[in-house]
Amino acid sequence: MRKIKLKILEKKPSLFTRLTLGILMFLLAASLAYAVWSLPTQALGLSAEVAKNVEMSGVSNPVTAVLLNYRSYDTLLELGVLLLALFGVWSLGGVSANKSSFVNPILDFLSRFLVPVFILFSGYLLWVGGFAPGGAFQAGAVLAAAGVLLFLNDWQLERKYSGFSLRFVLVLGLVLFVAIGFGFVFLDRVFLEYPPQLAGGLILLIEAAATLSIGISLAALFLGRDPSVKSDSKIDTGVHK
């Protein structure tokens, strides 16, 4: 792997620059502190509304209720942002990875043990999110950690899975979210409205798909390139020759 030089020529900025900027930042912090200070010490925000409707939302964890029901549109778009980042990273082609083939035996041993645990724990977080802290993003992050461990051990996705199958899993969460959200439009509801009695199950389904997509996306971001593309060392101009 190409090493990034961290200690490049960074000359220390002059005392004057540092001082001026420091004073400006202090003033900014002071005025922000004043703004925060002037807020009332007691404020319910939307907690009353959240609690009032939580029975209709299908889950009892208020944060999950906000994320996957009241403000599920934000969550849907945010799955889009994650996917978009992956599109962006893949479009950059990655930097040629000439990693050493040396595999740390301790890392190897530990990850054989840890990866299954991580996957299990990810499932637990997904399940528990309905009624206690947890949920798709936390579960996805743990799943991604398993992926990162695998990559650190020079693990490679089998070639037959690295093309369409991988891409399919990456978009699954978003597509299922849209499909379920829009499905009920045909039953005279609005986009992202779920019947209260089905909401719990639907949210779990969406979250399960989202966990998978989030976990794999984050791991793929760590890898930094499209695994189905062999070599990226050459920069393809591809513009109208």
């Binding site: 007691q42 319910l44 907690s47 609690a51 994320l67 403000r71």
Partner: peptide, 20 residues
């Protein structure tokens, strides 16, 4: 700032979105 009640969940959800 909700006193003894459960903290407001909406900013929590926004922060999760923000983190992603």
């Amino acid at each position: 700032r909700t006193g003894d009640a459960v903290p407001d969940a909406v900013p929590h959800a926004m922060v999760i979105t923000g983190i992603v």
